[in-house]
């Protein structure tokens, strides 16, 4: 394997792991449900995407076919993350989950 591919794979792996961890820290640390929603939808999606990309590069550097299923999983996660976040936000507004103090504006009553 060429040294360039090794550097690229290692960097992408560490980047992905760090972002997955940051998303989870956000989920554990932020004060209310609506702010917690931000960590998983963005940081975790990007983190898993980077890990997938490193897997694609790794297996093509090993001389196998280009990994289409990895790309398919990444595209699927990118498409579904906003939908599930939206559904959960709607459910939370329906139940009336409390917002943290200092939040501007209010969720709707529908």
């Amino acid at each position: 394997m060429s040294p360039f591919a090794e550097y690229a794979i290692s960097a992408l792996l560490l980047f992905g792991g760090a972002f997955t961890l940051i998303g989870a820290i956000g989920l554990a640390r932020l004060p209310d449900f609506y702010t917690r929603l931000h960590g998983p939808t963005k940081a975790t999606t990007v983190g898993v995407g980077a890990i997938m990309l490193s897997s694609v590069i790794y297996f093509s550097a090993m001389g196998e076919d280009i990994g289409i299923s990895e790309i398919l999983i990444t595209v699927f996660l990118l498409m579904t993350a906003p939908v599930s976040a939206n559904m959960l936000a709607k459910a939370a507004m329906h139940i009336g989950v409390k917002t943290v103090e200092g939040t501007d504006g209010k969720p709707w009553e529908q």
């Binding site: 997955t20 917690r36 898993v48 897997s55 999983i73 996660l77 989950v97």
Partner: peptide
């Protein structure tokens, strides 16, 4: 609240995918 738990499971399965790839 319940949405928090569902969100946690949602993130957990994405992490499981990452672990499987690794």
């Amino acid at each position: 609240d319940e949405p928090d738990r569902v969100l946690a499971i949602d993130t957990l399965y994405i992490n499981a995918i990452a672990l499987i790839i690794l």
